[in-house]
Each structure stands twice: as structure tokens, then as C-alpha cells.
Design a protein around this nucleic acid. Structure first.
Length: 274
DNA sequence: ATGTTTGTTCCGAT
DNA sequence: CATCGGAACAAACA
């Protein structure tokens, strides 16, 4: 579910609200496997103080005082929620971190595509190196994109979803960025020219910034909410994803599947290119 | 009942 | 060997 803006929102709320708190107790549902192993996870995390929370690609990393990190990847249906003196009213809770001040952090994941893991400092470094540049933290340019697109014969949208190329883009924001850049998602990545690459780079940053500004996207299933249950509002600003008419020219939006993912584009504003 | 879904990984084919 | 595309993971919902 969450892409960069949603993950960013969660990480920053956690950083602001649970930094400095001690994790008093850890509980893992007995049908669930925390990584590398549930007992290791519990032993390593329990009793430690939280130093910070941050985002790496679409992962949320909670740094502990001993240099280890708790990693949560939310995949499609994962949620991180904060609770205070109230019954836990949530399906699919897999991990509970009991915090100082009688508050809790739950990790729930109905479909279990996500993960909960404890990582050493070294493993966090390895994780960070396994991803392409973050669109915000690096000086990513159109020229860099061209380099990454070289030799890729598949559609540019497929390449944008490759986390080793750019970390954090998902299906919704990839669709939106391509619309903003006026590039057809099926365009072979290697055919993107310098001007288009610059525009795409700018568009990626723009849609992600807007996504963050509006607190991410909450779709009809209401799957994504922030740790305080607040829904995102960016879905009200989608220009192409799940739309019927192009907001720019009124043309019917084309829907098709690319590598199994829903792909939306305006045939007029994002013309085919060969 | 069937098709859809914000993510990632694995595998066989190219 | 790098890349590509489909399947799989599993559940809710329309």
C-alpha cells in the first residue's frame, strides 16, 4: 500500500512522538514470524530506548539505543498505529511494542506481504545500499535517469517501479509522475531523451512532494491511515490514477496493465513514442 | 464467482 | 549475465 509519501508520513509522526521512549515489552502473534526469528526479535528489541524513526525507500526504520533497528515494511496492507489506554480495535495485528507512558505501537498486516525485522547497524547499511537514489536525498538529475534507463527495453513505467533505479516510487505516484511529464508509460525507457528525463525528474519530485503535503493517499478501502488514524487527502488530487477523463484535455483516460499493474494515461497528453 | 488491489521476490524464458 | 514478465504470497471487497 504505502509508497514514499505514506511511509514518510508515518516515519515522521513516529519520530516526533515516540523518540526517547523505552520499549518495555514486545509481543508477536504466535502465527507470525518476525525476522530473523521471533525470539531473537523479542530479545533484541525489548528493554531498548528508541533513538529515532526514519524512512529508507518504503521501509520504516526505528533506531534503538544499541545501534540495532526495527524494520517494518508495510507492503500492501501493513499499518503502524499508536494506541493509548484503549482497546486495540484492529484486524491482523502481528507485533505490539509496549512503550513507556502506557502507549503501544501495533504493526498489523492482514495479507502478510509486509515484514517486521530487527537489523544490525551493518544490515541497515546494506539495506540502504541495495536501493537506487532517493528522489529527495540525492542530487538526482535527468542525466542520471538516462543512465539508469540505458539498455532497458521495457516501458519506462516498469523501470520507475524498480526500487534499484529510484527508491520509493510506487504504482500510483509513477502513473502521476508520467502524466505530469507528458510521457507515455509504455515508452521504452532507453528512448527517453534528455529533455523528457529532466521533466520526469522534476515531475517525480513534484508528485511526491504533493503526496507528502496532503498526507499521502487513502483509497476507498481506507487501508492507509497514519499512526493516529488520519486519512491522506492526495487521492483528491489524482490527475490520472483511477480517473476517467484527462483533467488537461478531457480525453478518455486509457487503462491497461503493465506487468500486472494498473496503468492510466491520456493518449493525447502522453502520446505514444517510438 | 470473478476480478481487482498502493509491494516484493522468485523463477523460467529471452 | 542482465533483463523481462508472470506467478506467487493472501485477504477483503465490489
Amino acid at each position: 500500500m504505502p509508497e514514499l509519501p505514506e511511509t514518510h508520513t508515518i516515519a515522521s509522526i513516529l519520530d516526533q512522538n515516540i523518540k526517547g521512549l523505552k520499549i518495555l515489552k514486545v509481543a508477536v502473534a504466535k502465527n507470525y514470524k518476525a525476522l530473523p526469528q521471533t525470539d531473537t526479535f523479542i530479545k533484541t528489541v525489548a528493554g531498548k530506548k528508541i533513538k529515532s524513526a526514519k524512512r529508507v525507500a518504503k521501509n520504516i526504520l526505528i533506531e534503538l539505543e544499541n545501534g540495532n533497528h526495527v524494520l517494518f515494511h508495510l507492503a500492501m496492507t501493513g499499518r503502524l498505529l499508536l494506541w493509548k489506554n484503549e482497546p486495540i480495535n484492529e484486524r491482523g495485528v502481528r507485533v505490539i511494542l509496549y512503550l513507556e507512558g502506557s502507549s503501544l505501537l501495533t504493526f498489523s498486516d492482514v495479507r502478510m506481504f509486509g515484514k517486521a525485522a530487527v537489523l544490525s547497524h551493518r544490515q541497515v547499511q546494506k539495506l540502504e545500499h541495495s536501493y537506487g537514489p532517493d528522489p529527495f536525498n540525492e542530487k538526482l538529475t535527468g542525466r542520471d535517469l538516462i543512465k539508469m534507463f540505458a539498455g532497458r527495453k521495457t516501458g519506462v513505467k516498469n523501470v520507475l517501479l524498480d526500487q534499484k533505479i529510484i527508491a520509493g516510487l510506487g504504482n500510483i505516484y509513477a502513473n502521476e509522475a508520467l502524466f505530469l511529464a507528458g510521457i507515455n508509460p509504455k515508452t521504452k525507457a532507453s528512448l527517453i531523451n534528455e529533455k523528457q528525463a529532466e521533466k520526469l525528474c522534476e515531475s517525480i519530485r513534484r508528485v511526491l512532494e504533493e503526496g507528502i503535503k496532503f498526507g499521502g493517499s487513502t483509497l476507498e478501502d481506507k487501508m492507509y491511515v497514519d499512526p493516529y488514524r488520519k486519512e491522506g487527502k492526495y487521492q483528491e488530487h489524482f490527475k490520472i490514477y483511477s480517473q476517467n477523463k484527462c483533467p488537461r484535455c478531457g480525453e478518455n483516460v486509457v487503462f491497461l496493465k503493465m506487468s500486472g499493474r494498473g496503468t492510466y494515461f491520456c493518449p493525447n497528453c502522453q502520446p505514444e513514442q517510438q
